[in-house]
């Protein structure tokens, strides 16, 4: 998949500058990042350090001001909005802190959403949805609405939605941030399993050292750059 057979994510010299009034805010500063295929990477850092901005660039929902973002050999920062949307539907699974489930849809229909963008028949889609919900241990909750599920269960549905299209990379933005320790551990166990058993590449933003300890590598965001050591 990747150009050199190892690196899945390659960010080179990425800047992200926001303009606030007359002031330029440099959120990312000539940032470089390589993530090998199959890695479970944790990104840590204080609020506003640019972790989520980097995650957005990797997910193709934002673009760098300068530099390039290459995922699986595709230079996604050059794609048009339409092509980028299509790329996201094929290659990325998002897991959000607040789950972002649609409250009017059942668990199964929430998980089915990304499959609506594929050419699968409804029968095939149903099968995929059941497999994904089974993988997160919720095969008995297919027809439950989000309000009928606990926070941990809702996040499992969110993960099922992220993996249902079998993407190459999972981007998790504080996936345990809204959960108690027990539920958070279950989610981390699940991510760990997906990484080890299914070889999913996972990049997880977190504030929680307990969560980052489950990752195979942790990087720290500081002043728009990534560091291997936690800054003082």
């Amino acid at each position: 998949m990747s150009e050199n057979g190892e690196v899945l994510v390659k960010v080179s010299g990425a800047d992200k500058v926001y303009r606030r009034g007359s002031e330029d805010l440099h959120i990312l500063d000539k940032l470089d990042l390589n993530v090998p295929k199959g890695e479970f990477l944790a990104l840590m850092g204080p609020s506003g350090s640019g972790k989520s901005t980097l995650l957005n660039l990797l997910g193709g929902i934002d673009r760098p001001t300068n530099g390039s973002v290459e995922i699986g050999g595709d230079e996604i920062s050059m794609l048009s909005d339409r092509k980028l949307a299509w790329w996201r539907s094929r290659h990325v699974g998002f897991v959000f802190q607040m789950y972002n489930l649609l409250p009017v849809l059942t668990a199964a229909r929430n998980v089915d959403l990304p499959l609506l963008l594929t050419n699968l028949s409804s029968k095939q889609r149903r099968k995929q949805v059941e497999l994904a919900l089974d993988a997160v241990g919720l095969s008995h909750r297919l027809d439950h609405y989000p309000r009928q599920l606990s926070g941990g269960e809702q996040q499992r549905v969110g993960i099922a939605r992220a993996i249902v299209t079998d993407p190459s990379i999972l981007l998790c933005d504080e996936p345990t941030g809204d959960l108690d320790r027990h539920a958070g551990d279950e989610i981390l166990d699940l991510l760990d399993t997906l990484n080890r058993e299914q070889g999913k590449t996972i990049i997880m933003v977190t504030h929680d050292p307990h969560a980052s300890a489950r990752a195979s590598r942790t990087l720290y965001m500081d002043e728009g750059k990534l560091k291997t050591e936690k800054p003082e």
């Binding site: 909005d81 949307a85 299509w86 996201r88 998002f94 959000f96 972002n100 959403l113 990304p114």
Partner: peptide
């Protein structure tokens, strides 16, 4: 708005 954002993140244009 967030639902719309989520759908678009999932790949809906």
């Amino acid at each position: 708005t967030r639902e719309i954002g989520t759908l678009r993140a999932l790949g809906f244009n």
